[in-house]
């Protein structure tokens, strides 16, 4: 029953994502820098997909395209079958830096989305709820400079969640945190995702993080990024970090990234 109820919730909350033959390049001075080369994959509603690849391979660029911050040079992007034409609060990004607005209190930072969409009044209760969810209710009136790195990233997460996104886009959101905070927040992410049921796209270059969190891991090549492998991670949550199957997957992925010699 519970599993069914969860599935139903998933079906309504998460959106499907189609990335079809996406190519992209930048012009740096007069040279053309290719970053994405015919990348295709699909994410089912409510799926947690990790994008793994070497640093600077173009993963973050892909996220910007999915977020609608830039149009792709070629190919098409669809959310629930509808072409992505620009940014939309149904696809919210959490960046590597929390990028909180320093002049706003924690609560006002979280309220940014509802305020920008013109629905601040209706969302008041939801804002408090999300603040409680990330454990920062007592810091609602604090200013960003008073927060630690982990707390700031939690505010950034709350700022995204308050919009009830259908696709949550995570661009190495835990990359700059200390390892303990990072492990804690990984577990928190899993339970948030399980509860809300949004589709999640996570860019990371931490193989263990990808395996701990995702249903699927997509491995990218060096720039220009191409999909090198698409590996399902069929393990129930909560996962155990020392799981031998995950260790085997890790060995396989590190091999794809050309690091097998060290393991």
């Amino acid at each position: 029953m519970v599993a069914l109820a969860q599935q139903v919730q998933h079906a309504t909350a998460g959106a499907s994502l189609e990335v079809d033959n996406i190519s992209h390049h930048f012009a740096i001075e007069d040279r053309r820098l290719d970053v994405l080369d015919k990348v295709s994959f699909r994410a089912a509603p409510g799926e947690f997909v990790a994008l793994l690849g070497p640093s600077g391979c173009g993963k973050s660029t892909l996220l910007r395209l999915v977020a609608g911050l830039e149009p792709p040079a070629a190919g098409s992007l669809k959310e629930d079958g509808i072409a992505i034409a620009g940014p939309d609060p149904s696809r919210v990004v959490v960046f590597q830096d929390p990028t909180l607005f320093p002049w706003r209190t924690v609560r006002d930072n979280v309220a940014l989305g509802p305020e920008a969409q013109g629905g601040l009044k209706a969302k008041r209760a939801r804002i408090d709820e999300v603040l409680a969810l990330v454990g920062l209710s007592s810091f609602a009136k604090a200013l960003p400079h008073q927060l630690s790195g982990g707390m700031a990233q939690r505010v950034a997460l709350a700022r995204a969640l308050v919009n009830d996104p259908r696709i949550l886009i995570l661009d190495e959101p835990l990359g700059k945190l200390d390892s303990l905070t990072r492990l804690t927040m990984q577990s928190e992410l899993v339970s948030l995702w399980q509860r809300a049921g949004f589709t999640t796209l996570l860019v990371t270059h931490d193989v263990e993080e990808a395996l701990f969190l995702a249903n699927r891991v997509i491995v990218f090549s060096d720039r220009p990024a191409q999909v090198k492998a698409d590996l399902p991670v069929d393990k129930p949550y909560p996962r155990h970090r020392g799981d031998p199957d995950l260790a085997e997957l890790r060995r396989q992925i590190l091999g794809l990234l050309g690091l097998d010699a060290t393991w």
Binding site: R64, P87, V92, W103, L112, E115, A116
Partner: peptide, 29 residues
């Protein structure tokens, strides 16, 4: 003003007018 401020606000549904009033102006204060 760092372009990341605009990116964040845009993904949250900000209009250009909102970006000017609520991002650019306070950041430039």
């Amino acid at each position: 003003v760092p372009s990341s401020y605009y990116d964040v606000a845009r993904t949250l549904g900000a209009t250009p007018w909102f970006l000017i009033r609520k991002v650019a102006v306070p950041a430039a204060m």
